[in-house]
Amino acid sequence: MIHLRYEVDGSDFVSCGKASEDVKRTLKNIGIPSEIIRKIAIAMYEGEVNMVIHANGGLAEVEILPDRITIVLTDTGKGIPDIPKAMEEGFSTATEAIRELGFGAGMGLPNMKNYSDDLKVESRVGEGTKVTMSFIL
């Protein structure tokens, strides 16, 4: 089993995605098929970006087992008041400044759902959000 852990810096949204890129490299090195790596890399990037643009950063943990990969993203940000609403395609609370960078299409959570085999979002307003994604190998 491999366990990876990253502190995601919430102050730098001009160049975020370092954790996802590192995970992508690691999965390539251990020989995971490229179609699966692509799904994991995209889903994790969306989650990583969300922690940066909506929650001031957080923690990303990746557990690699022979038959599955689990990614847990935890933050102590503002939380999500209405999770079903947040899951809707196109729903976004991103600011104009963030949208100008190309983020904030409201497609992050839908992409995470589509690309993972299982997505769980737990959140408490004012306390934070925990996103768990699993991928079957």
């Binding site: 001009v14 160049s15 975020c16 995605g17 996802s20 890129e21 992508k24 490229s34 692509r38 890399a41 995209i42 990037y45 960078l101 190309g102 983020f103």
Partner: peptide, 15 residues
């Protein structure tokens, strides 16, 4: 027409 470093990051991740 998006011009910032995240464009390259997305290209890497999405192949």
């Amino acid at each position: 027409v998006m011009n910032n470093v995240n464009v390259a990051g997305v290209a890497v991740l999405a192949g």
